[in-house]
Amino acid sequence: MAEALLETEGLTRRFGALAAVDGVTLRVERGTVHAIIGPNGAGKSTLLNLLSGELRASSGRVRFRGEDVTRAPPDVLSRKGIGRSYQTANVFPELTCAESVWLAAHSRNAGRLFQPRRDGADTAAREEDALRACGLSGRRLSRAAELSYGEQRQLEVAMMLATDPELLLVDEPLAGLGHDEARMVLALLREVAQQRTLVLIEHDMDAVFAVAQTVTVLVNGRVLESGPPAAIRASPRVREAYLGEEEP
């Protein structure tokens, strides 16, 4: 069995009486794409918020590289190597693409408060690589607010890549994108997945089954099934859960 990069054990998050994530146990293997699917309201984004430290777990454990990080805040998790992108573009509207990606790259030096503007070739190279990989080299000096929605999603991914994460938590990267933009982002995710580990939430089942090695199905905050795409596609329980939704 491959080495686990991220593991959860009985992870639970309650909002009052509602358990949005209820006893989720996951094992994400290093170097794989692990997709999390489920109907709307299944708790997928809440689970990602727990993994990125933006929400505190009510109970359960999260381990990253074997270390317990259940109570770690988002900045600590980011510096440990967990990157995050969002369901809707979460950028800095007043900053240019270059400034936004530079901030992300510079965060690896954020242990020191005061530093010169150009802090080493590594930061500049990460900034440049991330912009190029996401097709934004020509938009370096455009403000995020001036970008199309699709470009803002590309900028999201570029910022995430510039932090050089080992594990990427990617929330619906294709949502709201046109056909061409979606193809480009999908190709980018495939490329990224060759060197890193991805936890992917996506409603586009074709995309999920094309890139994922493992698929976990969440329903009502609980794991319904988890396994290789072919097994998930064939599972009667999954088909039943998706009645009224798109068939996987």
Binding site: D75, S78, N90
Partner: peptide, 9 residues
């Protein structure tokens, strides 16, 4: 919020 997930305390 975004700055925190980029790794800034």
């Amino acid at each position: 919020g975004r700055m925190r997930t980029l790794g800034y305390g």
